[in-house]
Amino acid sequence: MHRFLAPNLRTLIQNGNLGLELEEIRLRLARPLMVKHQEGFIFLNAIGQPCQAEQGYYVTQDDIQRTVQIITRNSWYAFEDEIRSGYLTLPGGHRVGIGGRAVLENGKLKTVKYISSLNFRMAKEIIGAADAVLPHIAALHQREVYSTLIVSPPGCGKTTLLRDITRQVANLGFQVVVVDERSEIGSCCEGIPQLDVGKQTDILDGYPKAVGISHAVRALGPEVVVTDEIGHPNDALSLAELARCGVKVFATCHGSSLAQIKAKSWAVDSLKVFEVIVILSRRLGPGTIESVLRV
């Protein structure tokens, strides 16, 4: 991920040699450089060492501009849509969140100028994350999988688990289509998934969920459709369409328990589609499987 930073910042972080894997790098114009590792956020000084905010290295306009040039390959216009949606996906699946001043046209975001914040987030891929749950969601001797909903609060590894389920199920021989509305499952960069989602997986990258599911069913003949972050009332219609066509679905949603999900209005119809619910937490670290429920 360091290679996408302005040379000055790259040298600073590499020289600092913190010995910890960085999860995030936050550049904020005229404010101290901040990184996140397993133990939390820290500020870095001019030689890349942890310090108090006041002693930190203050990010310059040139740092931001050079970094933007590198991540956009000197071609801002080629990433207009991504910039409007607030982030870019880089080779390797890393993501950069972008903040600045909005330029509006007819009340809609046209572009962003005066970039003041860049938030680099390291892609996390855990091969084998789904090993423990796979026996619950796939009956291989019958060549069958069950529609599965992964439920957890933010930051507990929902998408990581979903990605590995996708990879393993696709590699078992199922035709899988990922409707990757936010490019978080496959982290596609120029059409190529940067994270392993299996050998028999088609990705509809950036499609709105309803449009993507409809296209998948009509055009790609999936046995399984995978999508992230359901929770909109309209999602129930799309999920029902899948059930009607005999297509299984793997999805995630925010929540901490089945009871909490059931209490939400959107869930009444949506939950009917799912046969297995996986509840995750961070109790023993991200990706802790609390329970696997057959419904």
């Binding site: 040039q69 000197n74 216009y77 046209k110 572009t111």
Partner: peptide, 10 residues
């Protein structure tokens, strides 16, 4: 100015 703005501006 090449590459530093959106397509309309370019």
């Amino acid at each position: 100015v090449l590459g530093v703005s959106d397509a309309d501006d370019q």
